[in-house]
């Protein structure tokens, strides 16, 4: 086992304290996975569990995804990096998580490729704040958009045709908490069950639309994908649309309404006849 970092030491001590004093029913964080270089979400419920908590760049999941299903467990402390905290902001707005039943332990995201590394909301902060990342220029998306439409279609079709419809992307996503997902509904069966390219494209396009105004670009879906489909290109396009059209960056403002549940009578409608 590598030596714990300063933040990990602080985190373990604080988790132990919270659990010993029974201030929370559990501390949601990460522990090392069974394979080297992996981490898995972990709910520490006993003071003795605290020393298993880790925090490093291998912590790929978005912990907010586990909060709706922990609602019946009482007060929960959650380790929140930038993306986790942005998702918590969204889940509170969507009434999936009660803010006053959470204790948010803010930490800087060890992953320096994240656009927002520091938590947006927290009750206490451990360690050093990360330097602010430069504003996102979405250069990757603009580069892809410069391709002719037929090439864009072929590139996305090629990638999405590889999808085996395991729905790992959905399972790790904090936005996907519907009791019955539209792809699982059987009456009517909205989307074909087969990994046919046309069903795959339909699934991924509708998934993208469901992310609009909600995706915080944590990248958990792309990291969970067993065959490495670059899902972030689709998610980031949706984020760019929402930013350009509605001036909204999901999860950064606890008081702003979700952009697709709100409207402005002056919204641009150049595409409507």
């Amino acid at each position: 086992m590598p030596r714990p970092t300063a933040v990990e030491q602080q985190l373990r001590a604080r988790a132990r304290e919270l659990l010993e004093k029974r201030e929370v029913a559990g501390v949601l964080g990460f522990r090392a996975g069974t394979l080297p270089g992996t981490c898995v979400p972990f709910l520490a419920t006993e003071p003795g569990d605290a020393d298993r908590l880790v925090l490093n760049r291998d912590c790929a999941a978005n912990l907010a995804a586990w909060l709706p299903r922990l609602r019946h467990r009482g007060r929960i402390a959650v380790v929140a990096r930038g993306p986790d905290s942005r998702s918590i902001v969204n889940l509170v707005k969507e009434n999936q998580v009660e803010r006053d039943r959470l204790h948010i332990i803010g930490v800087a995201d060890p992953d320096d490729t994240q656009p927002v590394r520091n938590p947006v909301v927290f009750d206490e902060f451990l360690g050093e704040r990360a330097p602010d990342s430069p504003p996102d220029d979405y250069a990757d998306i603009r580069e892809f958009e410069a391709l002719p439409p037929a090439e864009r279609w072929q590139a996305l079709l090629d990638e999405l045709s590889r999808c085996i419809r395991c729905y790992a992307c959905r399972q790790v996503c904090p936005n996907c908490y519907c009791p019955t997902c539209f792809v699982d509904a059987s009456r009517p069966a909205w989307v074909g069950r087969t990994p046919d390219p046309s069903d795959n494209v339909l699934f991924h396009m509708v998934r993208a639309i469901h992310m609009a105004g909600r995706c915080v670009e944590c990248g958990a879906c792309a990291k969970a994908c067993p065959i490495g489909i670059p899902l972030m290109i689709i998610n980031r396009k949706v984020s760019l649309i929402v930013r350009d059209r509605f001036g909204s960056v999901p999860g950064t403002d606890p008081d702003a309404p979700l952009p697709l549940t709100a409207f402005d009578s002056e919204d641009r409608e150049e595409f409507i006849r």
Binding site: V201, A212, V238, T261, E269
Partner: peptide, 29 residues
């Protein structure tokens, strides 16, 4: 229709991104 307009805006832009021909899907009032 205001709420719909935002949804259609996202769909319109996403269809364009996927390389679906503009004009395949039309919106009007």
């Amino acid at each position: 229709n205001y709420v719909a307009r935002r949804r259609f805006a996202v769909l319109h832009d996403l269809l364009g991104f996927f390389g679906i021909e503009p004009g395949r899907v039309s919106f009007s009032w």
